[in-house]
C-alpha cells in the first residue's frame, strides 16, 4: 500500500490527492455499495466523501490512519443519506439477532435512530474513546499473537456485534452460557488491567481508581 504525505494533502496538493483517490476510490465505492445499491447514488456518496476529506484534512489527527479517516467520512455520508429518507418506525428489531453483523448494525444505525439515542447513554469524551480504541487494539493484538482465534471470534461476536451469550453457545459450540459469561468477564478484566497501564495519571477512566474498584 502506498504512503501519503499528510502535509501535501493539507497543502491541497493536486497530485497527492489524485494519488490518494486512485488508491482508495474503489474500496470506498465497494464499501458504499454495500449499503446503497443504486450506482449513481453510490457514486454521489463517494464523490461527497472525497470532497468531505478535502474539507476535513486540516483537522486530520495523526493517531488515525487515512483509511479510518476516509471510511469514517463515507460511513457518515451513508448515515446522512438514510436519515434523509422517510423515517421508519422503530421496532425492537435490533435485538432479534438479525443484526449480528457489522453490516446489519450499520444499516440499523443508518435507517433508524442510532442506538445511542434510544439506549441508556454511557457517554465518553473523544479522548477517552480514542484511549479505549487503543486498549482494544492492544487486546486484539495479544489474542492474535497467542493465536487465540476462537476466543477472538467469540469476543468480537459478543462485544462488537452485541451477540447474546445464548447465541454464542449455539454459534461457537461452547459448553453453556456460564462459560460464555466467563470468557466475557475475563476479557473485561484484561481490558481494565490494560486501561490501568495506559492511564497512570487517572484522567481517562476515573471509575477504575475509586476505592473498591476491581
Amino acid at each position: 500500500m502506498s504512503e501519503f504525505s499528510i502535509a501535501k494533502l493539507q497543502a491541497l496538493d493536486e497530485g497527492e490527492w489524485a494519488r490518494l483517490q486512485e488508491e482508495y476510490f474503489p474500496r470506498i465505492y465497494f464499501y458504499v455499495k454495500k449499503s446503497i445499491k443504486e450506482h449513481q447514488t453510490a457514486e454521489d456518496v463517494v464523490q461527497d466523501t472525497f470532497l468531505g476529506a478535502v474539507r476535513g484534512i486540516s483537522n486530520f489527527k495523526e493517531e488515525y490512519t487515512l483509511d479510518q479517516f476516509l471510511f469514517g467520512i463515507a460511513r457518515n455520508r451513508i448515515i446522512d443519506f438514510f436519515r434523509k429518507k422517510k423515517p421508519i418506525p422503530i421496532s425492537s428489531q435490533g435485538d432479534d439477532g438479525k443484526n449480528r453483523s457489522y453490516l446489519g448494525l450499520e444499516r440499523f444505525a443508518s435507517e433508524r435512530r442510532s442506538p445511542d439515542e434510544s439506549a441508556v447513554a454511557f457517554e465518553i469524551s473523544t479522548a477517552k474513546r480514542e484511549a479505549l480504541g487503543k486498549i482494544l487494539k492492544v487486546f486484539v493484538q495479544e489474542l492474535w499473537e497467542s493465536e487465540e482465534f476462537q476466543k477472538l471470534k467469540v469476543l468480537e461476536f459478543l462485544l462488537a456485534l452485541g451477540g447474546r451469550n445464548k447465541e454464542a453457545v449455539a454459534k461457537f459450540g461452547i459448553r453453556d452460557e456460564k462459560a460464555v459469561a466467563g470468557i466475557k468477564f475475563r476479557a473485561l478484566e484484561r481490558l481494565r488491567a490494560l486501561a490501568r497501564q495506559m492511564d497512570p495519571s487517572h484522567e481517562w477512566f476515573e471509575g477504575l481508581w475509586k476505592p473498591g474498584a476491581r
Binding site: 471510511f71 474513546r129 479505549l132 487494539k137 468480537e156 459478543l158 462488537a160 452485541g162 473485561l188 481490558l191
Partner: peptide, 14 residues
C-alpha cells in the same frame, strides 16, 4: 459492553 462495541466497530479494532 455497549460502548466497547461502538468503539470496536468505529475504530475497526479487529
Amino acid at each position: 459492553t455497549f460502548t466497547l462495541g461502538q468503539v470496536w466497530r468505529e475504530m475497526r479494532v479487529s
